[in-house]
Design a protein around this nucleic acid. Structure first.
Lengths: 333, 333
DNA sequence: ATGAAAGCGCTAACAC
DNA sequence: GTGTTAGCGCTTTCAT
């Protein structure tokens, strides 16, 4: 037979099911002696509340959906960590989804969140589809965008000024003497990457003698970066590139590794390298990595807080929380 | 008003509730024309299945619980990734919990899993409590242990031979000439760490001239390692330590960083350093890190597969899948 | 091929 | 303080 239900507890403790429910949810309404009997029965039966039944009854869940491009990237892991921290304080749980750099799983997780009737959704969109989010809004599920501001300003957002970050990175590269710079992005560009490149272009635009190229990877991982690094080495023509701005730290670390292993190219002597995110491992890299820092945990915390505000004041107009990126100079540049 | 339910769909499509349900779950029983009408209504109404109601009716969920010590550690993130991969193939979803190095949240997540009526639990126990797991077994929820074999062999497990890993690490250190070795663990030792130390002791035991000490950290993170590194530097007496075996790569990377920054201690010249896990970032470390590799994603995949087997053949006796760790020699030793 | 109805476990409204 | 009951949305007999 199945799990003990509230009905079994009622029988065992000689109370009605309503009373058992009250013991659990409004103990102050129940006599002490009854409570004792009920708790005793709960213990001996090993009763545990059935969350599905509760939720069905309540009509809404106590879960938040969080969809991020790549949870294995320490940057996003930190965002999730910050979010969990705040959520836990309110006894909210988080269902975390990894949508993939290319967003292939994005729609799948949104489906899941809808089926789960999550109380709110936090999404770092890869393939931004407003109609998808409209559906959420029609069911009154608050949505917060992470690292994307929708042009119509319909949804609140928590972002970092990626464009400014891109500017900082390339401007720094130029100040350090780089003139032939390449930006490493990814095909199926996420909005973030587009913005970083835009900032990079702006910085390069101020200097007529600077050339800014770009290369797209299939995914923004260490191994993709490493593969690219080896490829660049194989085709290296002296002076072809003297500055690299990697779309994220994983790529930067991969490239760095390839260069250092080969021993033919020194960083920063031959090529200057800047990453993005400033993950923890950037500073313990083989050549400590110059990077653009984003406050990962804070972003996660702010996203949950925005949701909490929406719960309490549904009519709050969409607000954008914007963090400023920071250039962290280390040895790689 | 709330979300559209199956009832609304039934009304809008002039079909009964039962028929709508059949369209969704057993389309072959329903005439094509009816199906078309139903799907049309689903679309216009924006109907989405209510997972809570489904689950209540079914009596069980389609979710797996996975509790790991620290999801921000790339090693565990990779384990989770492997698990998700296999789970997704079977349309199972995973609720991931971070129990904390000290296991403070372990019980909390087990509670959650019980309330959720998850179909199976994967647990890397920090504070192993058999009675807690017995409760799960009484409700016929399969459990797989990760990186821990319970002495009674009541639960299947997926493990790496941590003891062998510890042996490999210290044996290697000794072969490279280290004689005064220190192991860095954590208070509230997890079973894994205990085993690693046991293996370390065994290796040291073969060499009468080798001294093996140990230091415990509050948590096994990069910053805890870095703090320890600075402390060690401050109290450095020449020749006091010539080999360090860190309980995991995060600690090793932190120590490494402290040493390299100070420039007074060279790795491996003055101290040889070995980590554990072989996370991706170990090879791009400032001094590429020698480490003991564990097949993270495979562990995750094996855990889910073990659960799947239990679903299909509940009476299968508990089996232990054991992976062998591998010494990866890089520059730090 | 379709419809009617029971019931999963729970909470809240109401009656006593 | 305690008990009774309706109903959340769904799937599944069982009739028709």
């Amino acid at each position: 037979m199945g799990d003990p239900s509230i009905k079994d507890v009622a029988r065992a403790s000689q109370a009605s099911i309503g009373t058992v429910s009250n013991v659990l949810n409004h103990p102050e309404r129940v006599a002490q002696a009854t409570q004792d009997r009920v708790f005793e029965a709960i213990r001996t039966l090993g009763y545990v509340r059935n969350d599905a039944a509760r939720q069905l009854r309540a009509g809404k869940s106590t879960t938040l959906g969080l969809a991020l491009p790549a949870t294995s990237n320490p940057f996003f892991a930190a965002v999730a960590h910050g979010a969990e921290e705040v959520a836990a304080e309110r006894d909210l749980r988080i269902v975390l989804g990894s949508t993939g750099d290319t967003g292939g799983q994005e729609s799948r997780y949104l489906d899941l969140f809808e089926q789960l009737r999550v109380r709110g959704v936090m999404l770092s969109p890869v393939s931004y589809d407003p109609s998808r989010l409209d559906a959420l809004r029609r069911r009154n599920t608050p949505v917060v965008l992470i690292d994307y501001v929708d042009p119509a300003m319909e949804f609140p957002a928590v972002t970092v000024d990626n464009r400014a970050g891109g500017y900082l990175a390339v401007n720094h590269l130029i100040e350090r003497g780089a003139r032939r710079i390449v930006f490493i992005g990814a095909t199926g560009w996420t909005h973030q990457v587009v913005q970083r490149f835009a900032g990079a272009q702006e910085a390069a635009g101020h200097h007529p003698d600077v050339v800014l190229a770009r290369i797209d990877l299939g995914e923004m991982t260490v191994s993709a970066g490493r593969a690219l690094g080896h490829e660049m080495l194989a085709n290296w023509e002296t002076d072809s590139v003297d500055g690299i701005f990697a779309g994220n730290d994983l790529i930067a670390l991969g490239i760095l590794q390839a260069f250092v292993m080969s021993k033919t190219l020194r960083v920063p002597h031959d090529v200057r390298l800047v990453g993005f995110d400033d993950i923890d491992f950037a500073q313990s890299a083989i050549v400590p990595l110059t990077s653009i820092r984003q406050p990962a945990e804070e972003i996660g915390r702010a996203a949950v807080k925005t949701l909490l505000t929406k719960f309490e004041h549904p009519e709050t107009p969409a607000k954008v929380v914007k963090f400023e990126p920071e250039l962290i100079v280390r040895d790689s540049s």
